[in-house]
């Protein structure tokens, strides 16, 4: 059993300091300890421990079927809706166990938002798509408040200028990249503290991908972002820390620059240099 070496709460320095961003230590947002997960009889995650920090992007990479998406879905308890799925271990958000009996997954998911691989806007208007979260959580009272939240969220998602004149049109009529940004706007409309992104760009063309990556850079200023990606370039571009998963185990986690230039584990080395996966 591998110990949890690099993971211990030593926050790494940010690789390249940017303007407006403190070089100081990042705050720990979510911490997973020794997470095991079973689908029925089949174990999919083996003792995964990972820290995710505020105001930074953590990338999960690894070959298909390695459990990175499964792990991501543990973080907002989306695995709860799957029959026969069982999770063991300890996952904390701001030090609070999210699998504790007193935690309602419904409330948790308002704090931990999620963006999926395939853009999945509801077959409603653009406005209603973004207002969905505030409506079910009762965040706004007046129409003006809703309009305000919708505008702010769309602006943060970089979509406002493109759709401000057609908020009544169906969200499904947008292009793929726009749909994905609409889904991001929808996810951040309830002011989550953590944003989980499950291969958000794998269905998009390079231009739309570039837009989303720029957006992530912007969003991470006041969010903890965890992204699953198959593109190592993307992980290198957007993330500060990278975790490498293999066969349901967390092999290595470190600063992104270190993972890609000087990984400790041979398997990580092989994967990032394209020798397998």
């Amino acid at each position: 059993m591998e110990a949890q070496p690099a993971v211990r709460v030593q926050a790494p320095a940010v690789p390249e300091p940017r303007e407006g961003q403190s070089v100081a230590r990042l705050e720990l947002k979510m911490a997973a300890r020794d997470v095991n997960l079973w689908y029925g009889e089949k174990q999919a995650l083996f003792g995964v421990s990972l820290d995710m920090f505020d105001s930074s992007v953590t990338a999960l990479i690894g070959p298909s079927g390695c459990g990175k998406s499964t792990f991501l879905r543990c973080l907002d308890r989306m695995n709860d809706v799957i029959d026969g799925c069982r999770v063991e271990g300890d996952i904390r958000l701001d030090g609070e166990d999210i699998y504790a009996p007193r935690v309602d997954p419904v409330q948790l998911r308002a704090r931990v938002g999620m963006v999926f691989q395939k853009p999945n806007p509801f077959p409603k208007s653009i406005f209603e798509n973004v207002a969905y979260g505030p409506r079910i959580h009762g965040l706004c009272k007046t129409k003006a408040e809703y309009a305000d939240v919708v505008e702010k969220s769309l602006t943060r998602a970089g979509l406002w200028d493109e759709v401000k004149d057609r908020l009544d049109e169906s969200g499904t009529g947008l292009s793929g990249g726009q749909q994905q940004r609409l889904c991001i706007a929808r996810a951040i409309s309830v002011n989550p503290e953590v944003l989980l992104m499950d291969e958000p760009c794998s269905a998009l063309d390079p231009i739309a991908t570039a837009k989303i990556e720029t957006l992530m850079d912007e969003l991470k200023k006041n969010l903890c972002i965890v992204i699953v990606t198959h593109s190592m370039q993307q992980a290198a571009r957007v993330s500060q820390r990278t975790a490498f998963f293999h066969l349901g185990k967390l092999v290595e986690v470190d600063e992104t620059s270190k993972i890609f230039t000087n990984p400790t584990d041979q398997r990580t080395q092989d994967y990032v240099t394209g020798r397998f996966g």
């Binding site: 989306m78 809706v81 999945n120």
Partner: peptide, 12 residues
């Protein structure tokens, strides 16, 4: 994906 999207927004 519609169900997932809704659940992920914290809908019951």
């Amino acid at each position: 994906a519609m169900r997932d999207g809704s659940y992920a927004m914290g809908a019951t």
